[in-house]
């Protein structure tokens, strides 16, 4: 009963805030609604017993990604209303297309069937908490064994993403002053300081 109530609560907030993300006029509000969506989605995961994913969602998406969004949106001076102008003419079309897709998906899900042997096919049997293993531990057990391939390739993907970010944004500008500690340490008085005796009245 209580879980049912919580589910409908979370789900409703997810939907409403998701709609708000795309309808809010102020982009900062959009991002804030996005964060709200993430939080509620995390709640849904907890209801499913997937507390690890829920926490990852909060930490990564809310803590890092969404906040980054927020910074970007606040720092860039983009007139979102101008951007919208052009797009507005596609709204009717978009609504029709979206409506059709929605109808179809509803039809699909309402008549959803599972394969008779679907449960047998699941590679990692659903971890029951009765066995005393949290799903964090369960993920830990398969992530580096059965799924080491996907894990390693994901690592490569992140590496490529990093290279990409550096290639596309990093540039060495001339005239940037940086602190070089080694240089500072290595400086000697004699290199930089010259003592001149100046007789008074003649100038340097």
């Amino acid at each position: 009963m209580l879980t049912g109530l919580a589910f409908y609560l979370f789900a409703a907030v997810v939907l409403v805030s998701a709609i708000a993300v795309i309808t809010a006029r102020n982009p900062v509000h959009s991002v804030l609604f996005l964060i709200l969506t993430f939080f509620n989605a995390a709640g849904l995961f907890i209801l499913l017993g997937a507390e690890f994913i829920a926490m990852i969602l909060v930490i990564v998406y809310v803590g890092a990604v969404a906040v980054l969004f927020l910074f970007v949106v606040m720092m860039l001076d983009i007139s979102f209303s101008d951007l919208r102008k052009g797009a507005m003419q596609y709204v009717p079309m978009g609504l029709i297309i979206g409506g059709i897709l929605l109808a179809e998906l509803i039809a699909v899900f309402s008549a959803w069937k599972f394969a008779p042997n679907a449960a047998d096919n699941i590679a990692v049997p659903f971890v029951q908490s009765a066995e005393g293993i949290t799903n964090t531990e369960a993920i830990g057990r398969v992530l580096y064994t059965d799924y080491v391939f996907a894990f390693q390739v994901s690592g490569l993907i992140l590496l490529v993403a990093m290279i990409g970010a550096i290639v596309l944004t990093h540039r060495t500008r001339p005239g940037v002053r940086k602190q070089k500690v080694a240089d500072q340490q290595a400086r000697k008085k004699s290199d930089v300081l010259e003592i001149k005796k100046v007789t008074s009245g003649t100038g340097v």
Partner: peptide, 18 residues
């Protein structure tokens, strides 16, 4: 325009599904 391209893709997808 990127969004138009995306639109064409989605329309194509929906057409096949439909």
């Amino acid at each position: 325009y990127v969004f138009q391209y995306a639109f064409v893709m989605i329309i194509g997808l929906i057409a096949i599904i439909s």
